[in-house]
Simulated scan of single mutants.
Amino acid sequence: MQKDQFLTRRRMLLAGAAALGAAGSAGVVLAGGAEESAPHAPAPLSGPQARQALKSSAFRLQPLTDDGPPRAAPRRLKVRTEPILRISGRGRHMMLTFDDGPNPDYTPHILDTLAKYDVRAMFFLCGECVVENKKLVARMADEGHVVGNHTWTHPLLTTLDRREIHDEMKSTSDAIEESYGERPQWFRAPYGAWNRAAFQLGAEMGMEPMAWTVDTTDWMTPGTSTIIDRVESGAAPGVVVLSHDAGGDRSQTVHAIREWLPHLIDSGYHMTVPPRRL
């Protein structure tokens, strides 16, 4: 697809998401797992170009295994009306998140950098990528990262009916569980475009909705220096940083994190992830 066509389609999708009701504000998740209210702030629409949603009949939604014990029903959560945008707690804590992966060309390099500095992050994965890269998903979990659900095909949820949204979310949770043995406890809507069904279904599946505070705009491939500047200028206690490890050429993201991560650590920031619910 030519660049001008890519940008035109992206603008149309983002405009549609805004018109159909992306979330406007959010709560705060505490480092210890509790919650408190937060000042209203717009939930940004962002991310790489969507992969066109397939018809439900074309999804790879069948159970990944036909044998073995049945899955335990997830603990249902309170239904939110807004996604979580920030974290809170004492000290200079931030949270790093990566969307759209895993991707064998970029995700391993990001994991290597995180391991080098002993940092944990959240990875919101697309199911169609999970089934092709199960070892990477297992590596994420083994190294202490939090794995979240980012739908199967990265569609604009506000254009889907409830059944289609359910299939996108459930099939991805099934694939993640098949990869490392646990179902995800967090969900992020593609483009930050939330609707009532996404909040309700996520809660039914035991997943809290997570958005972000700082967008690196790496999905625009603006240049490594621009990505570094956006992270460093946006750094502040409680922010959630959005980056991507798939969905396009993410070499700039790979190079940028090698620069901004040690800088933030040297500046006194601590990278955290939400606590695991038992």
Rank of each mutant, 00 (worst) to 15 (best):
E143N: 05
C126E: 09
H154Q: 15
L136V: 04
D142Y: 05
H145Y: 11
F124H: 12
K134G: 08
E168A: 06
D112A: 15
N133V: 01
Y106A: 10
F124I: 11
A141C: 03
D118H: 12
G127D: 01
R163D: 10
E164Q: 14
E164C: 03
I110P: 01
E132H: 11
V119D: 05
H145W: 12
A121G: 08
V119Y: 09
I165Y: 01
R139Q: 12
E143Q: 09
E132M: 04
Y106I: 06
D118F: 07
R163L: 07
G144T: 10
L160A: 04
F124A: 11
P108H: 09
H166Y: 09
L136T: 07
K116W: 12
V137Y: 00
W152V: 05
T151Q: 13
T151E: 14
T159M: 11
T107K: 08
V130Y: 00
L111K: 00
A115D: 09
V146H: 01
T113Y: 02
D161W: 03
D105C: 01
H150M: 14
T107R: 08
L160M: 10
N149E: 14
R163Q: 11
R162P: 02
D105A: 07
L125T: 13
V119W: 13
T158G: 03
L111I: 11
L160K: 10
R139G: 07
L160Y: 06
L156I: 14
K134E: 02
L125R: 02
A141P: 03
T153N: 15
G148E: 10
V130F: 00
D142T: 10
L114V: 13
E143G: 03
F124T: 13
V130E: 03
K134T: 08
T151S: 15
H145M: 13
Y106H: 15
F124Y: 12
A121Q: 06
A115V: 05
G127L: 01
Y117C: 11
V119T: 11
G127H: 00
N133Y: 00
E128M: 08
E132L: 07
P155F: 10
P155D: 14
K135V: 08
D118W: 09
D161N: 10
T159L: 13
F124P: 08
D161R: 04
G148Y: 02
D118L: 06
W152F: 13
M169I: 14
H154P: 13
E164Y: 04
V137H: 01
V147Y: 00
